[in-house]
């Protein structure tokens, strides 16, 4: 099921897909520019000890982001 990245339970090794972006400001623009457009699949590589930030792998590179700053990114688990 699709849910915001900030509330989706995540664990290292899981794969997910961006299903919707619910905001259009410069905040979400940044994430989109880094390649997190709708339909992009990514792998959760690491979750920092207190749940934030997380490290994901997408489009052949690795990106670190804060879950609570990505509440407008709806994702769904894949596979």
């Amino acid at each position: 099921m699709a849910a915001p990245l900030s509330t989706t339970p995540l664990h290292a090794g899981m794969k997910a897909r961006v299903s919707r972006i619910t905001q259009s400001g410069s905040h979400s623009r940044r994430l989109v520019e880094m390649g997190l457009v709708v339909g992009t699949e990514f792998e959760v590589l690491k979750v920092a000890p207190l749940g934030d930030p997380i490290e994901i792998g997408l489009r052949g590179y690795r990106l670190c982001l804060r879950r609570k700053e990505a509440e407008f990114l709806e994702v769904e688990a894949v596979g």
Partner: peptide
Amino acid sequence: GKRLPFLLELP
């Protein structure tokens, strides 16, 4: 004011 989100590439 508004901050840019913390995004960090891990090369």
